[in-house]
Nucleic acid binder design. Sequence first.
DNA 1: CGATTCAAGACGTCCGATGTCTCAGCCACA
DNA 2: TGTGGCTGAGACATCGGACGTCTTGAATCG
Lengths: 223, 223
Amino acid sequence: MAVTDEAIEKIKGMIVSGALRPGDRLPKESELAAELGLSRNSLREAVRALSLIRILDVRQGDGTYVTSLDPQLLLEALSFVVDFHRDDTVLEFLAVRRILEPAATAMAAARISEQQLDALANQLDKLGTDPSVEELVACDLEFHRGIVQSSGNSVLCSLLDGLSGPTTRARIWRGLTQEDAVSRTLHEHRAILAALRDRDAEAARSWATVHIASVEQWLRSTL
Amino acid sequence: MAVTDEAIEKIKGMIVSGALRPGDRLPKESELAAELGLSRNSLREAVRALSLIRILDVRQGDGTYVTSLDPQLLLEALSFVVDFHRDDTVLEFLAVRRILEPAATAMAAARISEQQLDALANQLDKLGTDPSVEELVACDLEFHRGIVQSSGNSVLCSLLDGLSGPTTRARIWRGLTQEDAVSRTLHEHRAILAALRDRDAEAARSWATVHIASVEQWLRSTL
DNA sequence: CGATTCAAGACGTCCGATGTCTCAGCCACA
DNA sequence: TGTGGCTGAGACATCGGACGTCTTGAATCG
């Protein structure tokens, strides 16, 4: 195994074993390199790789630190990876989202606060009845994120956040070509919100499923 | 932005835009470095980072290539990230798995082949009635992977593979020395298999839910 | 014709120097 | 005495070049 890969594994080991804890500062590059038995250049490659996936946080002039290791942070790297997928796998991503999002929405029905509900309602109202496609999609993302956050599961939340990337493009595309997509989306959002207000998990789940399935169906018929 | 980060973005751009396609070979390091306007050292950091998350495949003595970019490959990096999570978030990962795995199992009920079913049955038989914990864990992983693969959604499959990474699972099982856990697991596996054979998606889903929920419950009571 | 050898090409690793940024401590000023 | 700027030490950023190791394929020899 290459020394750089070894270094990656060793640093990983130090973190997993607890020798390095979230927020801890690593020894300076030259010291750590000596400690691990490789050159500073090679060590830097390892550090850079771990920083790309948000394990390490490198601050020039200061030092290198272990990040908080929050699921949110680590899964953020997921969206970077997801960006590489081509359109022919969008359907598979959407299918996964169709599983997760309704479940998250149902979970939120039991936990979402009144303030959160009001905030969501406000957000929908602010959009008006004839928004631009870009506005609608941005609002859509925000709306769903707000709900999923209320599911109380940060892993679920981050995962959905990452998966939503590629489908965003598809939704924009759809909004541009399908006439009634905008009004239908608005209607579905209000239905989801109403179900959440009623604390009706099953209704919330169903509306969320319908919401995603309609995008999926359109996409399938288009490809 | 640092030159290395710039290089990462540029290489990403070349791939996303289609200038570099899966399997393509990159210019040699010195040339690419000159092309992107940085030193070979800095470029190598970028390449190393992209190779950690399986975007690039570096072969010493040969050259650097774009990987197939299969969802399977890219999400493989997920397990690397998941390894960093501490025990207090295991429950959240498990909750996500509890959503995905039953859905995948239900999907498999409609698509799984007879050969696949026989293979799964064989695998369970081979384990005997009193396996070691290590054998059981390995078999458990294999069993679920086999089913999820039959769901026909490679994104879903890779995601579950990453989430139920060896570390997570191992940690759960290590403490799981409950006597009846082994036999109960075996029983549940057989029930899932029977439901699949019957093409009974709902039964398969329910058994999968029960299967995961029992682990979840045990874990919750232990932490 | 096949096996072996060898050389070119490409990545792997290291070194040392210099640039740039951050932070903390010192000092002058009000 | 408090505040603000200045400055120097420390740490990361980047570079260029040298040398090692590995892969591959062509040339060579039996």
